[in-house]
């Protein structure tokens, strides 16, 4: 416990040997060797652009949602980073370090911007696994809220099995609508980051469809959600 106690008063984590590995939109991610175990500290920093009242409200809400969702997933056998320690005051959570790369990086490495002709069995398998896991998450009535290819990791030690991260925007809902919007976010992030990858996303959808009896209503809803963006060449 001594290191954890030490962490509490420290505002700059790099002073205890933590290494900044990425800065997302929400938080800074540090890597730290903790009693010989590699771990991640995700620290939500104060957004100076946001009004302080608004910022602390949003920040507190999201850290709680993240913890609850990570736990719920873990309990139900969905691979997410294991939660080690939570510090609400300094809005930090300590998690297991997942050795691997993001799906985004994997696709960049393996497809070289041509997603139509480079569909190896491995890529198909990963897409099908994403669909299946997202479906499992939705069956827990959990909405991820920010499904992108940067928020899905591939764990090296288990031959690139998927690990879902960043549940800061997650929430609980039983509605097909919310689940469909979640898939729509993934679709848009997928296709705008990986142009011409429509067929890969279809693999995800197909396996989502095959994975649960609740899926058909979500997929139907998705067709309605797709019509909603502004100025589309469709009427809806």
């Amino acid at each position: 416990m001594s290191d954890l106690v030490k962490m509490e008063g420290i505002t700059d984590l790099t002073k205890i040997g933590a290494e900044l590995i990425s800065q997302g939109a929400e938080a800074k991610t540090f890597k730290l060797n903790y009693f010989g175990m590699e771990c991640i500290i995700k620290e939500r920093f104060v957004k100076t652009y946001r009004h302080p009242t608004l910022d602390s409200k949003i920040s507190n809400k999201r850290i709680l949602q993240e913890i609850r969702s990570l736990n719920k997933c873990k309990k139900n056998g969905i691979d997410v980073p294991g939660l080690l320690f939570v510090d609400i005051v300094q809005t930090r959570i300590m998690m297991e370090f997942v050795n691997g790369i993001t799906v985004k990086q994997f696709l960049y490495n393996n497809c070289e911007n041509n997603y139509q002709n480079t569909q190896t069995p491995e890529i198909i398998r990963i897409c099908r696994e994403i669909g299946q896991q997202v479906c499992k998450i939705h069956d827990l009535n959990l909405i991820h809220g920010d499904l992108t290819t940067s928020n899905i990791l591939l764990r090296t030690s288990t031959n690139n099995s998927t690990v879902f991260i960043d549940f800061g925007l997650s929430y609980t809902s039983t509605l097909a609508e919310d689940k469909a919007v979640d898939l729509y976010v993934l679709e848009r992030a997928f296709i705008s980051t990986h142009p011409n990858s429509e067929s890969l996303f279809n693999e995800i959808l197909q396996s989502y469809k095959d994975s649960s009896k609740n899926s058909p209503s979500v997929i139907n809803r998705l067709d309605q959600v797709r019509l909603r963006g502004r100025k589309k060449l469709a009427f809806g």
Partner: peptide
């Protein structure tokens, strides 16, 4: 990206 301005987010 790749000859298109891609929309990441927009108002619904």
């Amino acid at each position: 990206s790749l000859k298109k301005y891609r929309i990441f987010g927009e108002t619904i």
